[in-house]
């Protein structure tokens, strides 16, 4: 359950940032989680919802987890491809000598917060892409 560690760290970063921005409510948080980050989105969500309950700043925050697919660069042909783990194979030339460019990251992309007295209007268009509930590879 290292998801608990990460959820705690995400909250620590949010608290620091909200203090800097003088925000006292966080409504939503957008994370980008690579499919080979070794983090399980469902476990991350559970950890987050347990930790936020007694937190004034974060208790109303929705966690949005966007999955980042694996992108590799082939060391032989130089091609850049999206691949499905565990197959780390260049679709162009068949080489297994590839470097992972994306898919291992855990990024706190953005969040939406308010100050007392100010009400938020509608959600903006570019907030998040597809929600990820899929099984994640380790």
């Amino acid at each position: 359950m290292h998801e608990l560690t990460i959820a705690r760290e995400v909250m620590r970063v949010l608290r620091a940032s909200a203090a800097e921005e003088s925000l006292d409510r966080i409504e939503s948080v957008s994370l980008k989680v690579g499919v080979i980050s070794c983090l399980h989105p469902a476990a991350l969500r559970t950890a987050f919802s347990v930790l936020k309950t007694d937190d004034e700043l974060l208790c109303g925050a929705r966690l949005q987890v966007q999955c980042v697919p694996v992108v590799i660069r082939c060391s032989r042909c130089g091609g850049r491809w999206e691949v499905d783990p565990p197959e780390f194979l260049c679709p162009g030339c068949g080489s297994r000598r590839v470097r992972v460019l994306k898919g291992e990251e855990v990024i706190i992309h953005s969040y939406r917060g308010t100050r007392t007295g100010e009400e938020e209007g509608m959600l903006d268009e570019d907030s998040v892409g597809t929600e990820c509930n899929a099984e994640v590879r380790h």
Binding site: I107, H109, S110, Y111, G113
Partner: peptide
């Protein structure tokens, strides 16, 4: 208000 962090949780 939307705040962009783009910061690694690691």
């Amino acid at each position: 208000m939307k705040i962009r962090l783009a910061q690694s949780a690691m």
